[in-house]
């Protein structure tokens, strides 16, 4: 199944069908989620209306972690099996993950100010999520920073895999050390400590974000594949049209033609 999808031509065919479904489904689910989060959900017994920030903060945090895991697994597949699509998937997903991490940090700050009394503290949870954000930025910079895209992909993949150690630290930081951030309410052993009327909007928003991720990932992967095809076509035509000039000057015509 995976190896069948790993063929770029087949991927283009399947993703062309899946893309509009993911895109419209994410619009619909997020619209329902926003209604539930902003209007239907009750105010919290302690936090009042400020609790509504949770409905973007928590799903964004889940996405930040899961997309990093996705990037890391795709990087491992790219390193070991040298699947071209795996590398493209990792490279396309990272900016989406960085965006969700930024949303998580910024909305958390806006939530922390009225509830905790501070925009930011250097506790284990907040610091490890900031490290996650920098890992994303480092990966994006590495992957785009090399002239040879294959080399950049390989170096970036190694960074992505090294950064995996940060994921359990983020998840369990609130249990291992005492932090200002409270422990998990939904993904915990035992019953969730959140009322159903607040859990449902949270899960709907999370589903909407997941579909948005899927749609964005497909768009970005298709873009990446198109751009690789463009690069290959330009190289080909440059090589066949002007073999003379290349030999005259002793330099390949590649950089000038590429731009």
């Amino acid at each position: 199944m995976l190896t069948r999808l790993a063929n770029p031509a087949r991927f283009m065919r399947i993703s062309a069908v899946a893309l509009p479904w993911c895109a419209w489904a994410s619009c619909a689910v997020i619209a329902v989620g926003l209604y539930l989060a902003l209007i239907a959900a009750p105010p919290d017994y302690q936090q009042g209306e400020a609790v509504r920030i949770m409905y973007v903060h928590v799903p964004a945090a889940w996405m930040a972690l899961n997309i990093y895991l996705f990037v890391a697994v795709a990087s491992a597949v790219a390193l070991v099996w040298r699947h071209p699509l795996a590398e493209i998937a990792a490279r396309s997903a990272a900016p989406i993950g960085a965006a969700f991490t930024f949303v998580c940090l910024a909305s958390g700050s806006l939530w922390g100010r009225p509830m905790w009394g501070t925009w930011w503290v250097w506790d284990a949870r907040l610091t490890s999520v900031l490290v996650l954000f920098f890992l994303y930025l480092g990966y994006i910079a590495l992957v785009n920073g090399f002239d040879d895209p294959g080399r950049g992909g390989r170096v970036g993949s190694i960074l992505a895999l090294v950064g995996v150690v940060n994921l359990p630290i983020i998840k369990f930081s609130v249990d291992w050390w005492n932090t200002l951030h409270q422990p998990a309410s939904v993904l915990r052993f035992g019953k969730p400590t959140i009322a159903l009327s607040m859990l449902v909007p949270l899960l709907v928003m999370a589903l909407g974000f997941m579909l948005l991720f899927a749609a964005l990932l497909l768009v970005r992967m298709r873009t990446e594949l198109n751009e690789r095809k463009i690069r290959a076509l330009r190289l080909n035509s440059a090589a066949s049209v002007r073999p003379k000039r290349r030999s005259e000057h002793g330099v390949p015509a590649r950089p000038a033609v590429l731009r």
Binding site: P42, P43, D44, Y45, Q46, Q47, V51, M54, M115, W116, G117, T118, V121, L180, Q182, P183, A184, S185, R188, T193, I194, A195, S197, M198
Partner: peptide
Amino acid sequence: STILAKHDERYMPREVV
């Protein structure tokens, strides 16, 4: 010099509480 409030991981409407 600074007081920070910690909140627990419970989210509930007032009626449920």
